[in-house]
Nucleic acid binder design. Sequence first.
DNA 1: TGTCCTACATACCGTTTGGTATGTATAATA
DNA 2: TATTATACATACCAAACGGTATGTAGGACA
Lengths: 207, 207
Amino acid sequence: MAKTLVKRRSRDPSATRDKLLNAAFEEIYRRGFQAASLDTILAKAGVTKGALYHHFPDKAALGYAVVDEVVKGLLLKRWGVLEPATGDPVSALQQVLRGRAAGLTTREVELGCPLNNLAQEMSPLDRQFRKAVNATFDIWIDAVARDLERGQTDGTVRRDVDAPKIAAFVVASIEGSFGLAKGAQSAAMLRSNLEVLSSFLESLRPA
Amino acid sequence: MAKTLVKRRSRDPSATRDKLLNAAFEEIYRRGFQAASLDTILAKAGVTKGALYHHFPDKAALGYAVVDEVVKGLLLKRWGVLEPATGDPVSALQQVLRGRAAGLTTREVELGCPLNNLAQEMSPLDRQFRKAVNATFDIWIDAVARDLERGQTDGTVRRDVDAPKIAAFVVASIEGSFGLAKGAQSAAMLRSNLEVLSSFLESLRPA
DNA sequence: TGTCCTACATACCGTTTGGTATGTATAATA
DNA sequence: TATTATACATACCAAACGGTATGTAGGACA
């Protein structure tokens, strides 16, 4: 018996922490951070207040952890930032857009982008929140910018475009599209916007 | 003495209502609707709870009124929707973008677009909120779409573009740009994004 | 002038909130 | 085996919340 390896620990702090993070993410995603109820999070996680305040000093710290350990990874994975860039960047970006447009869930359309939700709600209210959220956006934007710059050296992207500026605009357009579609509760509008963005990307190719 | 015209009425219901709406707008703009405190709003408006609940049945109704009677007009005015369209639409839109970029306030960069804030926070939570917010977005999008269509008949806009789709994308990009800039607290990023959007609009002109 | 409805002001209420104090069982360590 | 720190569970708290009940002053109208 590999008891020491497989043993059912009646106390598993990291598992408890994960349950808290996941439950908090769900609640925050649905209601926003400020309106997220700790009691609801605890009920969903199946633990008590003692566990929460053992792992996190306060509600804000739980929120920061949700950004750094849940939302950040989710976003970077969904937008292909974690995978190594290959081929010409315009086509690669277009493919990511198509993939996202094809795989949209109702939940995603209704609730929008969790990172953008937190950015809009918390940026003016909490400096630490703003920094955590913004750091993640910067990673995304920088990744797009570097892809475009690589395309410029490879000759697949026009040399007269300002790659960092375009990258920021691409991310802004994506988030704006999700936001508008969230208000309209329309996956069709979201897909349409992503298509327009895709056609804009096409204009970045050399003439 | 034009007493009946200029008289200081100790009771002025519509003025009281306006004070409530303006104070509520400020508080909601800063903290979001859910976190907006009625007591704070009342203090800012200089009235009491009795006045509030005389004019509005509950907090939600106050929020709806803020959208319909404050935010809506503000947004449509700022983006030139209320002024009659003239000249070629691409140039007109670019001019609005330049004007907005030039006239940005710190407050606007930090707090973002009040309509978009409410859209992101309340759309999944309150159907009536969502409808009020979305109706205003639709007015804006439709206005842009009609401008573009007019340009198409005038020959200043390419005929192969889908005007309503482009219009939605333009609004999405603008809101996304404000949102990203709000997170980054950067007027420069906002201006940069609006410039990229302006260059995109340029591509709508006939070859 | 008397009446009556509007337009508030004041005081209060139950609920929910984030947070804390305290007790206790587990499990590594000495 | 005894000790001790970790990892919780339970019970509780003050403050803030949205909302209500009740009282009252202003002003149009009769």
